[in-house]
Each structure stands twice: as C-alpha cells, then as structure tokens.
Write a protein that binds this DNA or RNA. Sequence first.
RNA 1: GGCGGGGUAGCUCAGUUGGUAAGAGCGUCGGAUUCAUAACCCGGAGGUCAGGAGUUCAAUUCUCCUUCCCGCUACCA
Length: 716
Amino acid sequence: MKDFKRYLITAALPYANGPIHIGHLAGVYLPADIYVRYLRAQKRDVKFVSGSDEHGVPITIRAMKEGVTPKEIVDKYHAIIKDSLAQMGVSFDIYSRTSNQIHHKTASDFFINLYDKGLFEEKETEQYYDEKAKTFLADRYIIGTCPVCGNPNAYGDQCERCGSSLSPELLINPRSALSDATPIKKKTKHWYFPLQNYESFLKQWILEEHKEWKNNVYGQCKSWLDNGLQSRAMTRDSNWGIKVPLPDAEGKVLYVWFDAPIGYISATKELTDNWKDYWQSEDSRLIHFIGKDNIVFHCIIFPAMLKAHGDFVLPDNVPANEFLNIEGDKVSTSRNWAVWVDEYLKDFPGCEDVLRYVLCSNAPEAKDNDFTWKDFQDKNNSELASIFGNFVNRTFVLMHKLCGGKVPKLHEDLMDDLDRTLIEEIKNSKSKVENAIEEFKFREALFEVIDLSRKGNKYMQEKEPWKKAASLERLAASEENGSKLEAHSSQQLIDNCLHLCLQLTANLAILINPFLPFTAQKLLHMMKVVDKILDWENAGSIKLLSVGYSLRAPEILFRKIEDKEIEMQVEKLKNGLVRTDTSSQLPDAVNQKSETSNQQPHEINHIKSEIVYDDFAKLDLRVGKIVSADKVAKADKLLKLEIDLGFEKRTIVSGIALHFKAEEIVGKQVVVVANLAPRKMRGIESNGMILMAEDKSGKLHFVNPDDETDAGSVVS
RNA sequence: GGCGGGGUAGCUCAGUUGGUAAGAGCGUCGGAUUCAUAACCCGGAGGUCAGGAGUUCAAUUCUCCUUCCCGCUACCA
C-alpha cells in the first residue's frame, strides 16, 4: 500500500428531513468513527468530516406539507442529528451543513470550473409541471389511476398495488401530489455531465487499480461500468438549493447529488486553512464511509467530477456497508419501523457504548443484518457485562483485597507457562485488532478485544489467586518452620497474577478505545492514568501501570439490562407509540436523499387506497361510555379504560394519556371498534379501540355522537 | 426485466486458491468453582454449508439452472 501522510475520512451526509436511526450509525457513523479514533491513537494526521445535507426536493415537499419554510425543516433536523451523533461519541472534527455560505461558494465554484472547461452538455427537455404549486414534478409526485389494475393512487413511476412499472403518461387522470392540479408538460433547460467520457478512466481506476475494494462495492461498480454510463443532469428546477451560477438559470439549482459530496470539501475548508493538504495532495488518503445505496455516487459520479476538475485526489477506498434490519423487517420511517438514536439516548442514558458495541459487533459489513432487542440485551449482558466488565471488576476487587490496592510486583523468576502465554496473547491482540481495522473488518477487530478479556478470565481461573490467599491465611496461623517462606512465595504468585491482569486491563483500555470510548475513559479513571496511555503504540506492552501505584476502587462498567427494558422497547416499536406524528414518510436508506424516482415519498397527504363496502362492513363500531379511567403504571401514554357497551363492560387500553387526564374523561361517550382482536399492552388485555380525531397540531379529540345515545348502539 | 451482493449450527456471523474431523460468539444441556455484575472456567449436543444438475478421483468451495432476501437500474447491456 502507498505510504500516506494524511487521512481524510468522510461519513455520508445525513439528509436533514428526519432524525437518524441506528441503521445510520451501524452502517456509516460508527465504522467511520472507529477507524478515525484508531488512526488518531496511532498519531496519524487525520481529519473526520461530515455534515447535514440540506438541499433536495424531499425537503421542500416536506416544508410545503407542514406549512413551514425549508430552512425551518433543516434547522430543526440539523440540530437533532448533530446532537445525536455527538452524544453517541462520533468524533467529527467538523459536522457542517450544506446550507452554509462556504458550501454555496465551493459548490458554485466547482460547477463553474467544469462549466468554463466546457464539460457540461446543455439539454432542453419537457418535464411535468404543477402550475398551482409552481414547481416541476418528479414522476413519483404524480398520482393517478393505474391502467393495469385500476388503483386510483398509483405513482407516476410505479403502482404499489400491482407492482406495474409505469410512467406519468400511462396514468389515467394524473394529478399532482402537491396540489391536485393536473400536471402539464413544460420545457426546461438543464446541464448534463457526460459520465460516458470518463468511462475508460473509471474502468482503469476501479476495476484495475482497486481490486481490494469490498465485494459489494466492486461488483456494483463493475456492473455500472460494464453497462455503459450516460449523461446525467446536474441541475434541477427548484428554488431550494444552490443557485446555478449562470446568468440564464433563474429558478434552477444544482442537483443535490452534485452539491452533496462537494459538502465534504466545504466542510474541510471550514475546518482548516490547510484543507488543500487533504484534498489536493497525492499523499493524502481519502476514504468515504457510506451505505450501499450511495455506492454509485461515491464511486462513479463524484470521482468523475473530481477527475474532471483535476485538482483533487480520488477516494482510495469506499467501504460501503449493507443495511441493518430491525426485528426482522427492514427499516421504514413511513411505517415508523426504526430505532431512533435520540430516543435511545433518552431511554438508555449512559449506555452509549452498549449501542456502539451491539451495532459494531453485528454491523452489516457483508450483507444485511438484523437488529433485535433480545440480541441487544444478550450481547450486553453476556459479552460486555459478564466477560469484559466482570473481568475488570474481579481484577480490581482482588487487587484491593490481596495486594493492598496497589499494582503488585511482577516476580519474573516465578513466571510459568501460563504467564508467558498470557503475555504473548496480549502482544498478539494488538496486531490482530490492527490488521482487522486496517481491512475495515470492525466486527472481527472488536471480537478480538473481547476475546482478550475472555483470555484474562481464563487465566485468572487457572491461577486461582483467591485459593492462594486462603492458604496464606492458614500458613499465617501455623507456627511451623518454613511456613514463612511458603507464605512469601504464595504472595508472590498472587502478585504475578494480578500484575498481569492489571496490565491486561490497561491493554483493554487501549484496544477498546476506538470502539467504546466512554468505557476507555472509565478505565483510565479507575487506573488513575492520563489519556496519553491510550496511544496505540502502547498496546501489547505489559509495562503500562507502574508497580506500587495505587488504583481506585472499581466501578461497574456495564450494568445488566433487564427483560422489562427490552420488552418495553419491542412494545414501543410494535405499537408505533413514538413519533406517529412526525409523518417522516420518506423511505430511507442509510443516506436517504436522491431524487431518483423510486426514492420519493410513499404517500403525500392523500386518501388511502380505495376499499369496497365489505371491507368497511367488517368493522363493528359501537357507542360506549367511559365508566372509569386509570393511568397505566410505568407507561407514559396509556390509560386503562372501562367502557360500558350496554350489553357488556370491557377494558380498553388507549394511548391517550398525554392528551387527557383520567378523571376528566369519565362519563364521556365514545365510539369503539368493538371487534378488534384483543392485544396485551403492559400486561393488560385491551379489547377494542377508541376512535379519535387528530388535528393539525397533533391534538386528539374524541369522536362521539352529537347527543346522548344508548351505550351499545351500532354505528354505521 | 437486467445487473450486483447474499442465502453455512436455535440466533448472529466467519471460512474454504476444491481434498486430511465444517468454525466462532451467543443460546441450550451437563460439570466444576466462588475472587467477581447468580459472574467466570471446563465439557457435550446441535449443520446432507438454500434446492437441483454438471465438471472432477474428490465440491460447501468451480460451472449451469431453480428459488428466496437485499440493493441498483430500466424496456437497455
């Protein structure tokens, strides 16, 4: 490998139209952070940049729907995302945003550079246009009746009901998803970047010179290159984004995919005046951490842009990860099937490293993986708490009991094979972890760290210093000749054992640091040593803690996670109790953006697909009266209601506690879905559902008869 | 529809330039132990390596077909 002097690590820019979930962390931010922390520990010159991607059509649509400005949307989510990442310990040197002035300038200049060289093609095409909303429409934003199956809410690119591939022309009665206006065709001019001109260069660069890239990345690139590249529009009609810096370009902005990767450059500029060292010097190593949906942009389009510009280095590697599923289903923000990082941080305070551990040890490095809460609990309780945490704990406890709270001496003359083997293992761990990280195999690297603590446990088990301590007591009580001598050597053996266990613990701190930085800090505190000890070159040494140095009492590194806690999370997920109001309806990939057709919103404020009368008739709706209402213990949002249906009384658990006080609603009339399958919530069986109306602000209102009606009356 | 990645123990994943018992962690079962967060340590059980065909002395590993999951893309390879 080339000898690089500098490293520039980028993590995909999260799209600022929603918070981030654990899939983003597992796929992009944690691997990047681990790599960066490792490089820093090696004292290499490294910069770690990222930021919010704040342009693109989905944000404007969302703003329109919520009646706010795009700026308000991105301000809100930029803050949330930045905060979540910071709290999780993702150690960016800078987390910027593409709405910054410096980025506008950088991206415009980049565009002009290519423009002045005559590298763009200008093309005029006809696009669909919504005259009411005064905006051009992507296929996905055009809705109409499917010509194949008659679904009245088919999208302009595909019918979700029958799966037919469509185009807007095929739709019957097409209408705009934004305003219901009938789209018209309108001419528009755009600037295209002829990727085909870079095909032979890219083939050489990737297929020949970067065979070491991961299978999924290399394969995807090969597929694109084999199939031939074509011109791609680099501008869009919109008023949200970076204005095309040309005189005749009113109402046009840079395509979000042109501007977003340039965000890496802008962020670096913002970070340091020496940004050119990282971007324009051949001995700098550029690495992009991304999710698999971004491969083509980071491996084909952006490198072609950089090449066209000419002043920049190209990525040396793009270790894209696959996706993380949740409890067997793929993440979907529209269905609210996700574990949100900001929620996790609230639910599990002080457990940042636990999430880091679980997501890294099960990262989707080679294929899509599954996250389950049970697995989260198991990994924490067995690997972190029982193996790693417990080893450190028993080492410290024994050291305090048997060695007076100080680092005991190592008596080399008494060392045996077990000792020597352990020392060897400590040394080996360093290179094992190192090699794995260099190859972006973070789960394997992390396993090696845990495995070292496993070896520590085994070593201690075989040495049994507590037994030697017991015999020591016996000897002390005895008056026999020679017992003093024996006691002396027993203590020396205890010393050796704990000396090595403590040095091993110091090694664990160094090795775990890139993965679990908060834990490494706790270890430093317990060992009363400074950050300097975490320098990577110290790993493998057994001379990290000085003999006679007194250490603090142990603190529990990882608490056990109870069944109840994960049950709650599973329930939270399944009931969709959280954020049903956020209407984050964009499908999400690790980096959700793109204005390509099949990544557009699933649903935009329109009626659900049509049903027939029989579908409706299946519902048994009844008028009921609330007899009593009680707050459900340990549940923020649940009320347990007794409902009188005339012919019977039944219990219904309803998620309305944030909106109503229990005592206020007793006596109220309600409409109940009486034949809904029973469901247990927090241990209480709920037999039905209360109908509620939700207004714009998210406030709930009871749906009930105009005037007093007999309980049990049928609603139809 | 095309292309790419993947389908290996109950779970999550390694691995095989084709060949001498198919691996790990967790879980499970049994044993030992008590310094420790009812922890640790030892041992056992558990897989016709998605299905089928072919090449070969030999295939989980190569080729072809089928099937399932994921991503990219579109009537074009």
